[in-house]
Design a protein around this nucleic acid. Structure first.
Lengths: 266, 266
DNA sequence: TAACATATGTGCGTTATTTAACCAAATGGA
DNA sequence: TCCATTTGGTTAAATAACGCACATATGTTA
């Protein structure tokens, strides 16, 4: 949980930024899936904010109904769902974006996901749903992926402003997720630059052994809106042609999504 | 869009409320499903805030990545989904609450919904999904229901603090949704009080002609956490026994949901 | 194009919030 | 049980944000 804005977003004049609001949102965000119940001290620690401020901001959230108090503990209330629900309905996720993901998921034969950068991770914001398992929202949306060793992550880095991306590749901690995880940061940089050159990302066995990830961008270099991705068993991929066909389908989803007003702004 | 906190929530000392954060959240909330793209002036009008403040707060949202700017227009970014996603996963909506709703939906034979009060409406926060129509989140969550003429709404009023509820019943504007809509506010008050007495709500043909709504509370009087509800064709209801059986099932869902940590806080 | 209407951006005095230090109460080990 | 820590809450000086008023920009109509 960092207070700094997303390092992949561009700046706005300092005098036009309300630090109180920034801090408030940081408090709100401190309640992630691994921290559903927090004390004031914990929030202060997670956000790096002063405890007195945390107290005020958290009580404000309670006052507004976004959070609830239970003795020393605070937790979010279902009211936070309203913001997301309004967004989803207003942008016709249910009627346009979700069906599109589902359609391509059928063609690709794998789950198709939509992700955006957030801090030093990629975060899922939507995912195709098979008929059997209704309601993926509660399961996957908000889940995080590392940037350096996943196809979605590298796609994000590839189309992000170069200085920021290189700084991220140079310094972001990572672990050896699998035997094939690239440990050499220079090599990661090379691969990310290759992604930018070709306009898609394929990462084999680096995050999960035996799994190959694919990703395609929505939006152009330095104007990335989101990334679509999928993954499949590496063993199931028989030829370069298989790979390129998957990428081609992802690029089609990306293009169709890019036409939606959600991803077509400046 | 009102700046006042939810009238059904209790107060917190004024000095412990950050007005800047309150205003910031009001700006965020101004982007509802009917207002996906807003100019600064529109936001100012919707929130009743000063335009200079709106500008700073909105630019802060852009800075944080929650909103995007497109010339004079602003819109939310998919990043707002992260908050809800974290909440849903952290509270195991996908693994516990959603399946529970689905299970009872099958037994009742109708869609089962979960709603909370927000301002002068009830808002859906979850809904059972049939196998055919995956992903209801984007469709229904965030949708609003009137308080005075729906079962869910009257249940909320019945278990809310009395002074607030009576004030709401006395003054909240409403229209004649159907031929049977109760137009007499005193009669509405009586029916709400009856709901409180019996612990459930049934409303026939008042909101949609030919449709009967049922609702049961999660949490007690003055400590309402949420409401579960369902609705069905009035013609399909043959006896008082039918009605009570539906209510009984709703009360069971409510009880089970009430045991979940989400709804069992103080 | 002119004139009007509306919207965005900016400077400054007033108001509010943060910060840091402090206290009291609660917590948790030894 | 005691004592060391941690936590929640409060205060006053320093800082930041608000809201008003004005300036600038945009766009609409005659």
């Amino acid at each position: 949980m960092t207070l700094r804005p997303d390092p992949l977003k561009h700046e706005i004049a300092d005098r036009d930024i309300s630090s109180t609001f920034v801090k408030g949102m940081a408090v709100l965000k401190a309640f992630d899936d691994t921290h559903t119940r927090l004390t004031l001290a914990e929030i202060a620690q997670l956000t790096g904010l002063d405890r007195a401020s945390v107290r005020r901001l958290t009580l404000t959230l309670v006052h507004l109904g976004y959070a609830e108090r239970d003795g020393r503990h605070f937790s979010l209330s279902p009211q936070v769902l309203i913001l997301a629900g309004s967004f989803l309905r207003g942008n016709q996720f249910g009627t346009h974006i979700q069906p599109l993901l589902n359609r391509y998921s059928t063609r690709i034969g794998q789950t198709v996901s939509l992700a955006i950068p957030d801090g030093n991770s990629a975060v899922y914001v939507a995912q195709s749903t098979a008929q059997e398992d209704a309601v993926s929202f509660g399961f996957t949306v908000g889940s995080r992926l590392p940037l350096l060793h996943t196809a979605i992550g590298r796609m994000i880095l590839a189309f992000a402003p170069q200085d920021r991306a290189e700084e991220t590749i140079r310094s972001l901690p990572f672990e050896q997720y699998a035997p094939d995880t690239t440990m050499d940061r220079t090599e990661i940089l090379n691969r990310v630059q290759h992604c930018r050159a070709v306009g898609y990302a394929i990462v084999e066995n680096e995050f999960e052994p035996g799994v190959t990830g694919f990703a395609a961008p929505i939006g152009g270099v330095n104007a990335l809106k989101a990334v679509v991705g999928t993954s499949m068993s590496t063993l199931g991929i028989r030829s370069e042609d298989d790979r390129l066909q998957t990428i081609s389908l992802l690029q089609q989803v990306a293009q169709e999504l890019g036409r939606s007003r959600l991803f077509s702004g400046s």
